[in-house]
Design a protein around this nucleic acid. Structure first.
Lengths: 225, 225
DNA sequence: GCGCATTATAAACGTAGGTATAGTTGTTCT
DNA sequence: AGAACAACTATACCTACGTTTATAATGCGC
């Protein structure tokens, strides 16, 4: 059985980097224990598994985290697991560790987006540095994703017509052009446009345009030669 | 001496991927020759050097290209050369090849942005695939850079005051607010704003805002909670 | 000194954007 | 049936934006 939920939480005195979780997938029990101890010693929460399958079957908490992954594993290998996580749209930054690696493996791992690839034996500090870099990368990714998610949920509150108007506003069309495009009266466009600004909480047109950029809203724009 | 400028150009019947250059830095003469032949056989131009220093001293043409780089070299090593190129802001995509590599090397290379890291012996097709991927990456990078360069040169044609107005317009301020900010009459701001639109060749405000995004123009914007 | 670009402004006018108020029609949920 | 909402329009009014024409001071290069 895997020693999960062993989050170091004896007191409320947790380090600044608290509530970041390091997932460990490593089949060797003693190695798994020593990795767990290492991360806990610097105040990181750890959840460890003995195989990829175990981790996939558990419910992963939605917090800043990274994954320390042994390349050689029973069942799914580390590299296969990396591919599988990508397929499932799970973007956790991965640090590979291995005792018997080769260059081809490491290059594949790095091409697949791994943060680092360490060979045993490695210094504790190397792994800790990699974990810090990895969690930082995850924090940024989550930040970006949340920004987009927020904007998207605001955009969802718009009625279909309002969304259409917003898109055309973003392309730089004038109200009367938008009206012609949608077969509306100009006044109607003005009203919807007002709704868009309110619902999207945009303080200015510049603001709204930037939101459409973030959302990746694009229409046929033959502009900017 | 290095066999440079041996660009395969007997006729004007060059392949579709023409005028992309593969730079080769490899100290072993026979290897250098076979690499040169390999790339020329698929219609790529090749410029080969025996050391990093030679390449740095030559004038690099400003076209889509990639670099096939031996890790072990006399003088500057391949990895050191990679660092040096980054320091010089030369962003050519690198494919490492090596006969005596290790994992640490390959990971460092990939972390440093290398496209691939191949160990000898490798199949010709592997290297060719990597070269295609690398030149494609370079093509995209150049495309993006040129877009920015064009916008920048347009921006440079603006007078200081016009640039200031453009920045404040991008933040979403109204003309009267911009006027207050710069200590101008509103009418003056309107005039400059018109100049900005003309000189930047922006068809709409939306267009202009996107240009400022591309240019990375940012001012203190306490917007978008 | 002359020409030129930059900075700055004014008057005047026209267009575009935005809001408030009010009303019609149609759908959907309760 | 009635409430709630989406879509749509109209009148009226105000603000913001943009251009044209004209004027003028400053500074820079030749």
């Amino acid at each position: 059985m895997s020693e999960r939920s062993n989050s170091q939480r004896e007191g409320s005195k947790v380090e600044a980097s608290a509530n970041a979780i390091v997932f460990v997938v490593e089949d060797d029990l003693s190695m798994r224990r020593s990795l767990t101890n290492l991360f806990q010693s610097v105040g990181l929460d750890v959840v460890a598994f003995g195989s990829a399958r175990e981790m996939l079957q558990s419910t992963l908490p939605d917090v800043v985290s990274c994954l320390v992954l042994d390349v050689r594993l029973p069942g799914l290998s580390g590299l296969e697991f990396q591919t599988e996580l990508a397929r499932l749209n799970i973007h956790i930054p991965i640090i590979f560790i291995t005792g018997h690696g080769d260059i081809l493996m490491s290059v594949r791992a790095m091409k697949g987006g791994a943060v680092d690839f360490l060979t045993k034996p490695f210094r504790d500090q190397e792994l800790l540095d990699a974990a810090v870099a990895a969690t930082e990368r995850d924090r940024k990714r989550r930040e970006d994703e949340q920004t987009i998610a927020k904007l998207n949920s605001l955009f969802e509150t718009l009625s279909p017509r309002e969304q259409a108007v917003m898109k055309l506003v973003a392309t730089g069309l004038m109200n009367k052009q938008i009206a012609a495009e949608l077969g509306l009266a100009e006044i109607t466009v003005k009203i919807y446009r007002g709704h868009v600004m309110k619902k999207m909480r945009a303080r200015s047109l510049a603001d709204l345009i930037r939101m459409t950029e973030t959302l990746g809203i694009r229409t046929n724009r033959p502009e900017q030669t």
